[in-house]
């Protein structure tokens, strides 16, 4: 499991990529999806996820759709048109960063996407 500090910078690209691939998702679903896809190595904490989701919504990259589920409101997050335009640059930036880290730490390159 990676530290919170390491995950902080890549949380937004992860959210953008997931929503680009899956359309709309709710918070719990995002956490579980990332955990399963990363074989348990990336555990997104709720304390990081929701502030990021709300910040992305406020910045106009995400939109929400509220649905009543079992006496409570479930909010599904999806990309706005503005959000769709930043997915590729955000992923590219992480891949570039990954290559730079490989230069620094001497590991072979691995594809993120």
């Amino acid at each position: 499991m990676y530290s919170r500090e390491l995950l902080k910078g890549i949380l937004k690209p992860i959210i953008l990529k997931l929503l680009a691939d899956n359309g709309k998702m709710y918070g719990y679903e995002i956490v579980q999806h990332v955990k399963a896809s990363s074989e348990g190595k990336i555990l997104i904490k709720e304390g990081s996820l929701y502030p990021s989701l709300h910040a992305l919504t406020k910045e106009g990259y995400l939109q929400t759709e509220s649905v009543n589920v079992g006496n409570r409101i479930r909010k599904y997050y999806s990309l706005t048109e503005k959000g769709k335009t930043v997915v590729s640059p955000a992923i590219q930036e992480v891949i570039d960063f990954q290559s730079t880290l490989a230069l620094l730490f001497g590991k072979s390159k691995t594809a993120l996407s």
Binding site: Y26, G27, Y28, E46, Y50, L53, H54, S66, V69, G70, R72, I73, R74, K75
Partner: peptide
């Protein structure tokens, strides 16, 4: 309230 809705659903899903 928005954050409370999110956390309520998150906790409720885990509890379920």
């Amino acid at each position: 309230l928005e954050l409370m809705d999110d956390l309520t659903d998150h906790l409720a899903t885990e509890i379920e």
